[in-house]
Design a protein around this nucleic acid. Structure first.
Length: 426
RNA sequence: GGAGAGGUGGCUGAGUGGUCGAAAGCACCGCACUCGAAAUGCGGCGUACCUUUACGGGUACCGUGGGUUCGAAUCCCACCCUCUCCGCCA
């Protein structure tokens, strides 16, 4: 959500950014609606003011038993109310129109975000590790099914496509990965562990910019709630409607949760394997900061996510997304991409975004300095640290040997005592 | 799910149709007193929006949304949430 005053003061900036996303003229449209809204508001408030004043006088007249005067004033109010009702309707209609226009406009990229159309224009920031030379690498589906530890067919029978059943040591490996990531983010990076609701209401989904535009990507419950597509939604919503003292910032929150996505727009993509599922575990990082701190916090967060891949010794690269590839709510986004041997390429495993005050405006989340008047909107950031399902894929594929055995990364040994390999006698 | 009680400013809490954006206390800020502090006294102290060069003025907000009324924190309806008891339950 954008500040209409900022748009009013700097229409070219917004027009340029939105035109690049195929929405020309919306800045002017918003400004016109805003002018209309303010005119209606002024007329409405003037009418209200007169009504209030007259009502007060009626009270006084009645106290003095001056019924004639009271009658006269009541007749006057009757007329004022015609205007009042009319302007109130206009005000509401225009406000709704402006609100729904603004709610559908994406965030504005920061100046250092590369301009581009799609993922081909993303910029590699750095690269870590060398892909292992694995001759004829198997993919994780092949590896898991040969071991009898991954079962897509049974999952499909009970749930449908894009679900999976993990068994035995692979299930245990997934659990170990989640624990490992959560421990790293809490113990080494200062994040507070949270166990949040997995079902949220409209307000939380709207505040984290999943609604109204992306309802199709979410699962909805029969009582009108939403299954979270990421723990970003409940974690960020913890400050919804709150005024946080500036001394308490930054808030750093993390959670290991299932995530549920309908993948409505992705039919036919990544149909094989665990890369794109309706349900997966993810460790999410959310930072809530003062406005001037968010960019530094963003860089720090990227480091927190990269640390997981480094600890697992998984080759990866860090990309800065271009304007065309960024999500709706982000001002700037880094993606971490991990090497997937079976595909011979890097695949997204984490996305870390600075949303600035975009979400905070939608959810009315503010900060206040002690002893100072006035409040400012918080900045919110979120990122995966990491997606557990995709990390499982990466570990299985990068740690396989020619016999289809999977070595356990050193960093996970404390979480899997006694287990050095999956498969064979290890 | 059933019965009952309740949701008021940072907190506690008064307020059942007009002079209530809202008493009082606490907390906080300023000033006075003091060498300093405490205590005491005096004053200030919600949020958002509109308007004004400024001083200022206005509107809205007492869980949320509707309604009644010239006028609603106060009356009516619906919903949400909290608490107590009962039922059910991992």
């Amino acid at each position: 959500m954008h500040d209409i005053r900022a748009i009013r003061e700097n229409p070219e900036l917004y027009e340029k950014a939105w035109a690049a996303k195929g929405k020309s003229g919306v800045a002017a449209e918003a400004i016109a609606l805003d002018a209309k809204l303010r005119a209606a508001k002024l007329a409405l408030e003037t009418a209200q003011s007169r009504r209030n004043e007259a009502s007060k006088l009626i009270g006084q007249a009645k106290a003095k038993k001056d019924d004639a005067e009271a009658e006269r004033l009541m007749a006057e109010v009757e007329q004022v109310k015609v205007v009042l009702v009319e302007q109130a309707e206009t005000e509401r209609a225009v406000a709704d129109e402006l609100q729904s226009l603004l709610a559908q406009l994406p965030n504005i990229p920061l100046p250092d975000v590369p301009v581009g159309a799609d993922e081909h224009d993303n910029v590699e920031v750095r690269r870590w590790g060398e892909p292992n030379a694995i001759a004829n690498p198997r993919d994780h589906v092949d590896l898991g099914e040969r071991l009898g530890l991954i079962d897509f067919e049974a999952a499909a029978r009970m749930s449908g496509a894009r679900f999976v059943i993990l068994k035995g040591q692979v299930a245990r490996l997934e659990r170990a990965l989640g624990q490992f990531m959560l421990d790293m983010q809490t113990q080494e990076h200062g994040y507070t562990e949270v166990s949040p609701p997995l079902l949220v209401n409209d307000a939380a989904a709207y505040g984290t910019d999943k609604l109204p535009k992306f309802a199709d990507d979410l699962f909805k419950t029969t009582d009108g709630r939403w299954l979270i597509p990421t723990a970003e939604v409940p974690l960020t919503s913890m400050v919804m409607g709150q005024i946080v003292a500036e001394e308490e910032l930054p808030l750093r929150l993390t959670a290991l949760t299932p995530c549920f996505r309908s993948e409505a727009g992705a039919s036919g993509r990544d149909t094989r394997g665990m890369i794109r599922q309706h349900q997966f575990y993810k460790v999410e990082l959310v930072s809530i900061t003062a406005p001037e701190e968010s960019e530094a916090e963003h860089e720090r967060m990227v480091g927190c996510a990269e640390a997981v891949l480094k600890a697992l010794e998984l080759p990866h690269r860090t990309m800065m997304l271009c304007t065309g590839d960024m999500g709706f709510g982000a001002r700037k986004t880094y993606d971490l991409e991990v090497w997937i041997p079976s595909e011979g390429r890097y695949r997204e495993i984490s996305s870390i975004s600075n949303c600035g005050d975009f979400q905070a405006r939608r959810m009315d989340a503010r900060t206040k300095k002690a002893g100072e008047k006035g409040t400012r909107f918080l900045h919110t950031l979120n990122g995966s640290g990491l997606a557990v399902g995709r990390t499982l894929v990466a570990v299985m594929e990068n740690y396989q040997d020619e016999n289809g055995r999977i070595a356990i990364p050193q960093a996970l040994h404390p979480y899997l005592p006694g287990l050095t390999h999956i498969g064979g006698e290890g």
